[in-house]
């Protein structure tokens, strides 16, 4: 685990990755009406007593959305927080439904790729405590 927490964050690399998919991802982020209608389509939201932090849009806003808002300039601590959001709070089952057509799974997938590029990802083989649930 330790090496994940010590490596410096390569913000330039994050920014490059963000730019590569900017056209699509920023449009998704900006067209989201912040209406919360996607909530019930996520089984994790339903299973956690309708806790807002499991809403598909909430998860995206606080992971990929945050990366774009900060233009990639994030520290390791926030990357570790995002790790919880995009691996623990979303299992990428692909069942979320948005009436406007925002495709949440592709955004979570992209956030995971960015985190992986900074060596942030769950390591179940090393620490079973990362199984979380």
């Amino acid at each position: 685990m330790m090496h994940q927490e010590m490596k410096p964050v390569d913000t330039k690399q994050i920014k490059e990755m963000l730019n590569r998919k900017k056209g699509k991802m920023k449009r998704y982020l900006s067209y989201c009406a912040h209406c919360s209608l996607c909530a019930e389509s996520c089984f994790l939201y339903m299973a956690h007593d309708q806790d807002p932090q499991y809403m598909p849009s909430y998860k995206v806003i606080h992971s990929l959305g945050k990366l774009y808002r900060k233009r990639g300039k994030v520290d390791r601590k926030s990357l570790m927080e995002m790790k919880g959001i995009v691996w623990r709070n979303c299992v990428l089952c692909g069942r979320c439904y948005c009436p406007i057509g925002i495709h949440i799974p592709s955004m979570i997938t992209f956030a995971r790729s960015i985190l992986r590029s900074q060596d942030v990802y769950p390591q179940l083989d090393e620490a079973s405590s990362e199984s979380w649930l």
Binding site: S30, Y31, C32, I100, G101
Partner: peptide, 29 residues
Amino acid sequence: TKLGHMLFFFLYRFFIGSEYSFVRGSRTW
């Protein structure tokens, strides 16, 4: 702004290949 959903809604439903399309779109991004 997010009001752009007015256009995006239709582009998405008519041109993107997805479960929720109104017609069989074939575009991907």
